[in-house]
């Protein structure tokens, strides 16, 4: 529910091109998300098979390419030309990670075969 409320409160600011005020409550809300996601991350990543640590790194890389969403806003043409160009480069950098990251993760994971899957060529 919280998610919904915050979202609707942001609508007015979004339409008026201003930022919602970052008060203490909002910052703490974000810090809660940050810290809890981090703890969850430790749990989940601690269980990742050490064999897959390289794909793990390229996967988290691809996932954090989600900064694409911020770049899209900058490049949307609503702002100054400078911002649009900064946005364009940001979209480019983030897409390299998203597209390349997921592709290469898959390429690596495809190579990990069981014995009966005909590993020998």
């Amino acid at each position: 529910m919280n998610l919904l409320l915050l979202a609707t409160a942001d609508v007015a600011h979004h339409a008026a091109h201003t930022l919602p005020p970052m008060d203490f409550g909002r910052l703490m809300f974000y810090l809660f998300i940050l810290v809890l996601a981090g703890l969850l991350g430790f749990e989940v990543i601690g269980r990742v098979s050490p064999t897959l640590h390289t794909p793990l790194m390229s996967a988290t890389n691809a996932i954090s390419g989600i900064s694409l969403v911020g770049s899209l806003v900058a490049a949307s043409g609503q702002y100054s030309l400078t911002s649009s160009i900064l946005g364009m480069f940001a979209v480019c950098a983030a897409s390299i990670n998203v597209v390349g990251g997921f592709m290469i993760t898959d390429r690596m994971l495809k190579m990990f075969k069981k014995k009966d899957q005909g590993g020998r060529k």
């Binding site: 979004h14 694409l68 969403v69 770049s71 899209l72 806003v73 490049a75 949307s76 043409g77 609503q78 649009s84 160009i85 946005g87 364009m88 480069f89 940001a90 979209v91 480019c92 950098a93 983030a94 897409s95 390299i96 990670n97 998203v98 597209v99 390349g100 990251g101 592709m103 290469i104 390429r107």
Partner: peptide
């Protein structure tokens, strides 16, 4: 994000996304 964002021009987004995806894919392959 695309739903949420008011997009006035697609140029910057498409150029960035196209170039980035091409580089990313080439490196991955």
């Amino acid at each position: 994000t695309l739903l949420y964002t008011q997009i006035l021009t697609w140029t910057y987004i498409l150029v960035g996304a196209f170039v980035g995806s091409a580089i990313g894919a080439a490196m991955a392959i």
